[in-house]
Design a protein around this nucleic acid. Structure first.
Length: 156
DNA sequence: GCCAACGTTGGC
DNA sequence: GCCAACGTTGGC
């Protein structure tokens, strides 16, 4: 079965690639996603073994900072059940979960950040279809084609 | 079902 | 900190 590729956004000030690298198993639950389109991808499309770019957003140097592997496919996001949690959602009780998470494990940090500027420089050609580069795109989970994946990694 | 108001995202 | 773009909410 062919592996799919993804791009996951995170704000490095909240949780960056180095935070993931510092965890004991270099693995974390990718929870807190509260957007239906992104939820659908976490729940329905991501499979164990898929790989994803770890993208730093809303920061000084936005871009792709590393590669992660999906270590566990979609499961209900328990952070929505806990009233004391910042991601609590009273409309997503445990018996009828609305939100989903996956587990991601660090594969490696890139030797350098492949910047948004750099990706944009190829938006007219090799990365013409890339969702991240669409104007006004805010989705925190987006698919990346095999072609885009290979092209971007060759930039490193 | 429409759409104005509101909250969030994220580059700059 | 600004603000454009977008998703969601809720009155009607």
């Amino acid at each position: 079965m062919p592996m799919n590729h993804w791009l996951l956004k995170s704000e490095p000030e909240t949780f960056g690639i180095d935070d993931l690298a510092a965890l004991p198993q270099r693995t974390t639950s990718w929870d807190g996603v509260r957007n239906y389109q992104a939820r659908n991808m976490l729940r329905d499309s991501m499979r164990k073994g898929d790989t994803a770019f770890f993208y730093h957003s809303n920061c000084e140097n936005p871009g792709i900072a590393g590669i992660v592997r999906i270590a566990r496919a979609g499961y209900p996001d328990a952070s929505a059940f806990d009233a004391s949690h910042r991601y609590f959602d009273p409309d997503s009780p445990a018996h009828a979960p609305r939100w989903y998470a996956v587990d991601v494990a660090l594969v490696r940090k890139l030797s350098r950040v492949i910047t948004l500027d750099e990706l944009r420089a190829h938006a007219g050609k090799e990365l013409a279809g890339m969702l991240l580069l669409r104007r006004g795109n805010r989705l925190s989970v987006t698919p990346v084609s095999r072609r885009e994946w290979d092209f971007i990694l060759a930039l490193e």
